[in-house]
Nucleic acid binder design. Structure first.
Lengths: 357, 357
DNA sequence: TTGTACGCGTTATCAT
DNA sequence: ATGATAACGCGTACAA
């Protein structure tokens, strides 16, 4: 017969066992506090008692007294987030959760349903009820959304697509190094006819990928043909498939290489190519962006990697820093920008003569 | 100048505002309790005050007093869990987290590092320190591991590959309906030469996939050729790639269809096929298992889907039920078995004459 | 070093 | 029939 719910030892138990007061137990276990110096012998008694009883402080009681819940809020970007349909927000959320766990923090996520009432202060109420210590916003929908959290007294960290008109610490990813590297790679392989499939949205982050692409081509004196620039509305498979099909339908003079600025776009590209029996990299070199599952496709894709794990790590670092700092001490709206980089795999090689001729 | 950390209203504030005692506030807001009946008018006063002050009870204080942390522990199976390398444990963990969130529960996960000391009671201590209310174990490594939690007084739910010698509520997935359906599908398409790539492990769950495969073939009077049964040690891409390469290397008389009992195995298969320029489904029909990212491959794969979301949902239901029930009331070691099913996509079709001839 | 009070909600007991 | 008072859960911080 096993004892159910064996009572966990409390500081009171330890205190009795060591014949000291609870205050002393607390002081000893937290490494000395303020003016409190304890005689080495009683210190040992306390330590011994604690280990003998297997004592660990109750996190709830501690949180209640410290007025810190150790729960942080996370607001994913609005798109529905299933792992393989929306890889970036999904993986980012994962890394946020992991980084939080490492710091003994819990994460509550505004669910998709809750996010529907995103314009109101539904979100703020959600977070407020859960007593979160701070929030992390992935690509917030509006400046107002961010501001409401700040007005509620919560430290806010913005990710990926920040509202720059709101003053808060931010972590972003710089597309430039990776995309420039990708183009250099293709050009060194001998490609001159390079197409682009990307997002046509107005946000600077999406614009940057296109701008970086075209400026690199210009700098190299390569043609930027508008019929080889396919702008889509979503980073999803269908969009990639459609865009690639359109490229395949071009009368002649096809590109020999292609940059698709999202793994999902690349999957759609691969599906279109597979259906048309166009082989990668023999008939077309392909580079994806994100590098989330680029390695898990056939063939494994060369890809521009986004450092999402580090984005999460830095976000948590910024948030915990904000929690430590006195409320209104130097708003310290640090902006951390992390570089992309190219990972070369099996989807790129020199254009074949046949294609060039 | 915004006010930082605006004090959240407490039950004390509401009490003052409504000119009643804190006890009454609690009683009214939680829907009547025990012997306490409140006059309609004061009841209104309390309700009004609560909404006016935007009051919501502090979850920490409540948890402290109710002796329930609202945190549950999750122990993933031992393999390193990166999303695309170990899709099943990963997706399962995701659904667990979601299902928990819906119930206002937090999840702490034993990290890979912690799991290293899995034989000792490292895990139990980890969970104990966090005051989890119960734990969910995905495919525990040993009966002892499960038992230690039970001995510690924690409700335990086992998932996927349970230790049946330990008495605890369990959620499993039944491979049979899906695999039988898959074979019926292939046979109806005209396939008679069907190969299998699967896990060679001893656990009943892995055995079942193989057994179901062979028994179906037997029942249909189809050949079970041992050189078409490739057993591997891991559900990963490399294993699938190697196994498929071996199949391709067979002198002649190749199978026209293949069941790979894991999406990752199927990815490896696709990579091997792509390299050999063998097309799916023209030259080979392929069915994967898991259906996690089968739809996101080129071509989209027909797959046997595991209902992982429902596994998680049921696990949480069992766990919360265990939390409600009195500690040792009918151990109620319910076993929930959920069926797999076939999802038909583009990777299966009738064998071509050429292959049959 | 110790006593005491606090953080906050809930519940058992007591008073009209 | 209605309501208030007090104590509890647990750790921490400040005054004594």
């Amino acid at each position: 017969m096993t004892l159910h719910k064996p009572r966990r030892a409390t500081s009171q138990d330890v205190a009795r066992h060591a014949r000291v007061s609870r205050a002393l137990v607390s002081g000893v276990l937290n490494g000395t506090m303020s003016t409190m110096r304890v005689s080495p012998t009683t210190r040992q008694r306390v330590l011994l008692a604690a280990t003998e009883l297997g004592y660990s402080p109750n996190p709830l009681a501690r949180a209640l007294q410290q007025q810190r819940s150790n729960v942080i809020g996370y607001v994913p970007r609005s798109s529905r987030r299933t792992p393989y349909e929306h890889p970036v927000p999904f993986i980012l959320g994962l890394h946020i959760a992991r980084a939080a766990m490492r710091r003994q923090l819990h994460v509550v996520e505004a669910s998709a349903e809750t996010a529907e009432a995103r314009k109101s202060d539904e979100l703020v109420r959600f977070m407020r009820e859960r007593r979160v210590d701070g929030v992390i916003l992935d690509s917030p929908e509006s400046a107002a959304e961010v501001q409401r959290f700040i007005d509620d007294g919560l430290p806010v960290i913005q990710l990926i697509r920040p509202r720059s008109d709101v003053d808060s610490p931010t972590v972003v990813v710089d597309a430039d190094p990776g995309i420039s590297e990708a183009l250099r790679h293709l050009i060194e392989l001998g490609h001159r006819n390079i197409a682009f499939i990307g997002h046509g949205g107005a946000h600077p982050v999406d614009r940057a990928r296109l701008d970086c692409f075209t400026s690199n081509l210009h700098a190299r004196g390569l043609p930027v043909r508008t019929d080889w620039l396919r702008l889509v509305a979503d980073y999803d498979i269908a969009a990639g498939n459609t865009a690639m099909s359109a490229l395949l339908a071009l009368p002649e003079d096809r590109p020999t290489a292609l940059l698709a600025t999202g793994d999902n776009l690349a999957v759609g590209v691969l599906q279109a190519l597979y259906a048309a029996d166009v082989r990668v990299p023999r008939d077309l070199s392909l580079i994806s962006y994100d590098d989330i599952f680029a390695a898990h496709l056939a063939p494994p894709l060369t890809s521009v990697a986004q450092p999402l794990e580090e984005v999460a790590e830095r976000a948590l670092a910024l948030l915990t820093a904000a929690l430590e700092s006195t409320p209104d001490a130097g708003a310290g709206s640090a902006i951390v920008s992390l570089p992309t980089r190219l990972i070369v795999r099996d989807s790129t090689r020199s254009p074949s003569r046949r294609q060039e001729g």
